[in-house]
Structure formats: C-alpha cells, structure tokens
Amino acid sequence: MIILDHVCKTFVGTDGQVEALKDVSLTVPDGDIYGIIGMSGAGKSTLVRTVNLLEKPTSGSVLVDGVDMTKLSPAELRKKRREITMIFQSFNLLMQKNCLKNVCFPLELAGMKSREAKAKALELLELVGLKDKASAYPAQLSGGQQQRVAIARALATEPKVLLCDEATSALDPGTTHSILELIRDINAKLGITVLIITHQMSVVESICRHVAILDQGSVAETGEVSEVFSNPQSRAARSLVFPEGDIDELFRELRENEHLIRVVFDGSQATSEPLIAHMAVEKGIEASIIYASMREIGGKTYGSVLLGINGGRTTVDEAIDYLTRKENVSAREVRPHVQ
C-alpha cells in the first residue's frame, strides 16, 4: 500500500517559489491500478516522483508498505527503490547498450552475477514479447518496443510497485493500447501495484480502477473510476470528463428557465429503450441533447448524456424522477460550479 500523507513540495527558483504539490493525501491499495490525471503543470510528475523520492517532499510523509520513504538513509533508499520501479514517457533506455543489457542493468546494480542476470533478462524480454530483439540496440526499435524493453527492465528486480510516468504519451493510439494491455496483464499476473500518471483520459478509463484528479498541485477528487467519471464533482474533474466544452460555459449559454440534467447509463442494458422519446410522450417533458458520449470504463460501456430541459423546478424534478426509475440509469441535475 502506498500512502501519501499531507505531501507538499515547493520548488525554489530564481523567480520565487513554486508550490508544485499542496497538501496531497492519497492511498493506493495493494494490487490496484491507480490513475493520477491532470492537466500539464498540475504536478503529476512531481507527485509520482515523491513516491520513490526522486523528489523529496518539502513536508509530509510517503509510506510504501509501512516504510516512511522520507526517513530512509541514502543506501536504504536505493535498496527500497528496487521495489518501486518506474517507466517513463521517453523510455529512457541506455542508447549504447543492447536490449538484453538494458534489462540486465537493474540486476547488475543490485549485484547479481552476469550469467544469472542475462538468463533473467531473457525471461523478461520473453514476457514483453521481445525475446528476438535481445541483441538489438534501442535506436533500432520502435517507440512501443522501446517501452516494452523499459517495462521488462522495470520488472527485473521484482518490484511491488510500478510507477508509470506518462508512459504512453509518446505513443500512437494502437501502441498505447497494446502497452496498456501489457501493464494490465502484469498487474493481473504478478499482482504489482501500478500507479499511472497521465493527461490522457482514455488511459485512465481503459485500465485504472481508481483515479485521483490533480488540479494545480491539489487533489480535486478521488474515487473509483466509474464513480468519478459518471459523476464528477469537482471543477477539474468536470473539465476532464467534458473535454469537449467548458461546462461553465454551457451554463452561461443556457436560456432562462433551462436546466441541465446529466444522465449516465450502463450502455449494455439501457440502450434498448428510446428513453428521451418515452419521457416526452409519457410526461410531456421535452429535452434537448446538449452533449452525449459513450465510454468504456473498466470493461463496461457507459453512456453519458447532458440534457437541457426547459421548465420550472417541478418539471426538472419530474424528469429526474422519471429517468432514475429506469434500471441502470442515473440522473442528476448539474448545477453551475460555485467556487
């Protein structure tokens, strides 16, 4: 289990102080795939680096399996880091070493004999599907292949935690998908806790169980992915879930007496009924669709629709009541965010 407890990080630069992390507290359960999402500059990369103490928190503590990372001596910290390995956006392979040697690298650091290290590295390259590239150099590989080698390297010391820092941001969608599949496999097979930093909504949606939304150095919202995505509370979460438009902008454009209702439904079961048409016929409530999307979250299809309803309080309540009575559908009014 990873526990970040009131972690703050302030950088002192030439032009004053920058608060990269402001009182961040998070708990990542063992074996979870936990996503941390935020816009660029939200402090994601700093946050993930506090876990293995590449960034030392200005205050607060970082507990990994009960060990306070901030209290370790340099030598203890180096040993502990073998349990918390990391993959990067730019893969960071050693360009002058071939794939096998790259995977051997952490084993050599740990003092393993060269022959044993090579045998182990070959097994790992097989796991990531690149056994035939053992003697190739990174420059000869595609981005996706390089990231696979980096994953094999990260797994070499049999870590308990895998930190992924924008690991798919430099890859095309197809490759991203296959790398995420690999990470999911590793999580399932080896039970490694995975902490994923990304700015890509789709990454969190496709493999994370829990998510924390980071906004300007603070945690805006945490929870299960399906919960947070179907029902975003914070402003930061909303702007991520509605990337197409600023929700507050929508409110400014609403006509008088128009209200917004957000309907979320389990796509696999609720899509057989023409819901909005029925509502119009049965209740006489007319709704216009302002925004709609389908997403796959944790293997399930979710649809979300933003409806504009013209009418008074009672009409809105009636509509919500009507919609929520349907199975696998939830509806709630979306109100302008009060800051």
Binding site: R81, R82, T85, F88, L94, L109
Partner: peptide
C-alpha cells in the same frame, strides 16, 4: 548525457558511483 537516463538509473537504485561507471561513461 541525457539527464533522463541518469534519473532512470536513480529510480532503479543506482549509487552515484554506479551512475558514473554504468551510465555517464558508457553513454
């Protein structure tokens, strides 16, 4: 030498001496 490579080595628990011998010089 790419600072990312050095950070990578640190993340894997390399000591300063190991970083010099196994990353900075060979790279």
């Amino acid at each position: 030498v790419n600072p990312n490579s050095i950070e990578m080595a640190q993340s894997l628990g390399a000591s300063p001496m190991q970083i010099i011998r196994k990353v900075m010089l060979p790279e």
